[in-house]
Design a binder for these strands. Structure first.
Length: 420
RNA sequence: GGAGGGGUGGCCGAGCGGUCAAUGGCAGCAGACUGUAAAUCUGCCGACGAAAGUCUACGUAGGUUCAAAUCCUACCCCCUCCA
């Protein structure tokens, strides 16, 4: 999508950076945006205690809108999470308890903090929980006021619904109601906050458009939908998922070091795209980085910027020091605060426990058997020396200044801190 | 409510009384080559154990059998068709 067609600065930049996948009447939306600040919202369900990289594109877009003076609303689906979004997943979502939900909502608030400025100023963001209104709904009034605006044909034509039916996947009336509730959110936010735009990932298109149509039927007002592309890596995998699970945005779920590594190791073909989406470097600067022969410079820049946006600039020095340690296979002793660190008590370990125990304790391996196999596969170094002997017992010779560097493969580093 | 099909390791998917800790694929991890990329090749890929081996697992609970993922019974869940 060419940016030159837009009058509003925010859509121009969004288009240039690759944020726009689909939208309803974008000309009219552009007009509204050019006239002055609007309120817009992004919703997500309260299914975990942290958001992850998969959520990040729409969040970056929400941030972009705020940067251009618009008012962002982060909606957390405390209500809709009781139903479970059936979109594009073939298992039924587990039912969450009230306690889990409120814990998750708190965690999501924390996840948003680096990206969206919340507060009371004119374009400060706001975090709302749709349980606030959805919990109040009563069945018969809801059916009469809301249900009748959803033609059955329209509902059945939703991609998410069709997919469930065609593939004979489990799908109950409970989940079938999800689009209605999400649509209702939009109406509620229009009335409460004069919110006229909903953004989301492209998998949310059906749900979002249901809201746009519903609002039109209820109020005769035009509201808008804008979706971001679903990010897959060049190799086709879903962005942000690793074997260990999601790449979480909260540092107590995923260390800044590992977060940095995630970006450092992206596919070559994705670097430019990711720089545009996940850093705030100028487009000229990104083009320059792309033209440099050594693509690793662009990757490191991506990792630095994405990480400092999420975790703050001050983590970078530590991370770079740890990287240097890794590069030299654990020669120097770093005491980085933002790299994975394991503290062990001298009297319990020295002369007692083995390298296998250490790998398990450091949560590198989930079991002792895995740790053994990792060693047998030449995957483990202690202070830069390859470990051959899985029975190796730790002693003071392994520590310099009470520290040892445990490296696993080329990318993982654990600082082991000895406590006397 | 009736009839039929199905629930196997992270996912897909074989197996249908012993040789099954369970073929194969994907994903993953480590090694080699590189650039902490991709592709390729090699090894690993339930837990405990140095090993021999032991234990726990094929929806849940029982049962038959020397022996069960495989047979029987009940229950739970999913799908399809009928009512």
């Amino acid at each position: 999508m060419s940016s030159s067609v837009f009058k509003s600065s925010v859509l121009r930049e969004a288009a240039d950076r690759g944020f726009i996948h689909q939208s309803t009447d974008i000309k009219q939306l552009d007009g509204c945006l050019a006239e002055g600040p609007i309120a817009l919202y992004l919703g997500c369900d309260a299914t975990a205690e942290s958001l992850h990289i998969g959520h990040l594109i729409p969040i970056m877009l929400l941030r972009l809108f705020q940067k251009h003076g618009h008012r962002p609303i982060a909606l957390v689906g405390g209500g809709t999470s009781k139903i479970g979004d059936p979109s594009f997943r073939n298992t039924v979502r587990p039912m969450l308890s009230e306690e889990e939900l409120s814990r998750n909502i708190q965690g999501i608030r924390l996840s948003y903090a680096p990206y969206i400025r919340f507060g009371a100023q004119s374009n400060d963001g706001k975090l709302v929980d749709n349980a606030e209104w959805l919990d109040q709904l009563e069945y018969i009034p809801f059916l009469r006021e809301v249900g009748r605006h959803f033609p059955m044909g329209r509902l059945l034509s939703l991609d998410t619904v069709k997919q469930k039916l065609e593939n004979n996947l489990p799908f109950s009336f409970l989940e079938f109601n999800y689009p209605l509730l999400q649509a209702y959110d939009f109406l509620e936010l229009l009335q409460r906050e004069n919110c006229i735009l909903q953004i989301g990932g492209s998998d949310q298109w059906g749900n979002i458009v249901s809201g746009v149509e519903f609002v039109r039927r209820m109020t005769q007002k035009e509201v808008f939908a804008l979706t971001t592309p679903l990010l897959t890596t060049a190799s086709g995998a879903k962005m942000g998922k690793t074997a260990q699970g999601a790449v979480w945005l909260r540092r107590d779920f995923y260390t800044p070091f590992d977060f940095w590594q995630y970006w450092r190791n992206v596919d070559d073909r994705d670097v430019g795209k990711l720089l545009r989406l996940f850093t705030e470097l100028s487009l000229e600067e990104i083009t320059r980085l792309e033209s440099i022969e050594d693509i690793n410079i662009a990757k490191i820049t991506l990792a630095d910027h994405a990480t400092s946006l999420t975790h703050g600039k001050d983590v970078l020095a530590d991370i770079h020091q740890a990287i240097e340690t890794l590069r030299q296979r654990g020669k120097s002793a770093s005491d980085a605060k933002h790299t994975p660190t394991l503290a062990i008590r001298a009297e319990a370990w020295l002369g007692q426990k083995t390298i296998v125990d250490l790998l398990v304790e450091a949560q590198v391996c989930p079991s002792r058997g895995k740790a053994r196999r990792l060693i047998r596969g030449d995957g483990v170094c202690l202070n830069g020396v390859g470990i051959k002997d899985e029975l190796l017992v730790l002693d003071s010779s392994h520590f310099f200044d009470e520290r040892a560097q445990l490296t696993v493969g080329k990318k993982r580093l654990i600082c082991v801190q000895l406590q006397l």
